[in-house]
Structure formats: structure tokens, C-alpha cells
Amino acid sequence: MYYRPEDGHGLPHNPFNAIVAPRPIGWISTRSTRSVDNLAPYSFFNAVAYTPPQVMFASTSSKADRARGKDSLGNIEQTGVFCVNVVEEEALHEMNRSSASLAAGEDEFPHARVTKAACTEIACSRVALAPAALECRLSQLVVLEGENNFMVIGRVVGVHIRDDCLVDGKFDITRFGMVSRLGYRDYTIIRDSFELGRPDD
């Protein structure tokens, strides 16, 4: 099969995001200028640089009554900060509940039954029990091609790691089952890993 995206794929569902998978979920927490917390999962998320450490996530839809179409984007643009929380298997349903369409300005933490904790470097809440959380300052907000497509790039200024997720000095994502997005409505839990040395090691 071959298709050009502009001509359509002819399949029951778009295969694009099933091809680029798995993708870690960036569970993004932000705070409005009125001190209302927001929590939402984004599956277009990844790390993009080591030094300084930087991450990105992209938002690809909108709500008509929100600045920049999403509370997350509006809050980040106004405050310049956000936190990326890692999603573990035990928090799968809480993460999913936080994707619900709530009224503007409503706090997703209590709706999703997620305990919050204060960040250290930024004025924002984080998921208290997350295996890891990355406190970020906004570096760039990039307008992408297409309607309501934005990419947020942030510099990591603080890192929280839950002690039980460190094994022999390494952050072990198989220990807690990192949740990742596949295509369609499909997800996967990472339970296995293997080491592969480079030729120059």
C-alpha cells in the first residue's frame, strides 16, 4: 500500500500515529495566572536534547473557549512554566480521566483523583506519586503547519525521581510499567528491556 496524506489513505482509521509508535505520554501539569491547576496527557511528547536537557510536546486540537485552544497551552504561554509527569501502569485510569473535557478553569487533579505536590523550581503542581517529573521553563512555542498545531519546547530545570524507581543507580521504567501510546485508542505497558552496546563503546 502507498498513499499521499493529502489524498487520503482509504482505511477505516488513520494509520499515521500507529506507525510512529510507541510514544511516551507527557502528562502535562500547568497553572493559570489565577492559580488554577491543569493536568492533561499528550502523546506527541519526547526528549529533544541532553545539554541543557530539553523536552517537547505538541497539541493538535482545540476548544473554542480557551486561549490558544487548550488550557495547557494558554497557561504555559502566560506563566512560562510546566511540568511533565511520567505515567505508570497504576495511574493509567487517572491519566485517562484527566483527558476529559471539563469546563474552562476547572482543576483536573481532583476530577481525575490525582494527588498533587508542589514543584520546587517553578510555580506549578506536579503529580505527587509519579515515577518521575520534569519541571520545565518554556524555551519556544512553535506554530506548526495545520490548524491548531503547536509545539512546546521546555528546558528542564528540576527533576523528581521516586526512590523505588531507581535500580542500581538507573531509572528503571520496567519496574513500574511506563505507559506509552500506540495508534488509534491503543496503549502499551513497557515491562521488558535489553541493553545493546554501540560499536565504539
Rank of each mutant, 00 (worst) to 15 (best):
M1G: 15
Y2Q: 08
Y2H: 07
Y3F: 15
P5M: 04
P5L: 06
E6I: 10
D7M: 09
H9W: 03
G10C: 10
P12F: 08
P12K: 11
H13I: 11
A18L: 08
P22G: 09
R23C: 09
I25A: 12
G26T: 08
W27A: 12
S32H: 04
A40W: 03
P41N: 07
Y42I: 09
F44S: 11
F45P: 03
N46I: 00
A47R: 01
V48N: 00
A49W: 01
Y50A: 06
P52L: 01
P53T: 00
P53I: 00
Q54N: 02
F57I: 10
K63V: 05
A64F: 09
A64L: 12
A67E: 14
R68A: 06
R68F: 15
G69M: 09
G69T: 11
K70L: 08
K70I: 03
S72D: 04
S72F: 01
L73W: 11
L73P: 09
G74R: 05
E77C: 05
E77M: 10
Q78T: 02
G80L: 01
F82C: 06
F82I: 02
C83G: 02
C83S: 05
E88C: 13
L92V: 09
M95C: 13
R97F: 09
S99Q: 10
S99R: 09
S101L: 06
S101F: 11
L102K: 10
A103D: 13
A104K: 14
E106L: 12
D107S: 15
D107M: 08
E108C: 07
E108N: 15
H111R: 06
A117T: 05
A118C: 03
I122F: 04
A123P: 01
C124T: 06
R126Y: 02
R126E: 04
V127T: 05
L129N: 13
L129V: 03
L129R: 13
A130T: 05
A133R: 00
C136Q: 03
C136H: 01
C136P: 00
L138K: 00
V142S: 07
G146A: 12
N148F: 09
N148M: 02
N149C: 14
F150V: 13
V152T: 11
G154E: 10
G154V: 07
R155G: 06
R155Y: 00
V156T: 05
V156M: 06
V157F: 04
R162M: 03
D164S: 15
C165L: 04
L166K: 13
V167Q: 15
D168Y: 06
D168G: 15
G169V: 13
K170L: 15
F171R: 10
D172C: 12
T174G: 04
R175P: 03
F176S: 05
G177P: 00
M178K: 09
M178Q: 14
R181E: 13
L182S: 12
Y184Q: 13
D186F: 13
Y187S: 04
T188H: 03
R191N: 15
D192L: 08
D192V: 03
S193C: 06
G197D: 08
P199I: 14
D200E: 11
D201Q: 14
D201E: 15
D201P: 00
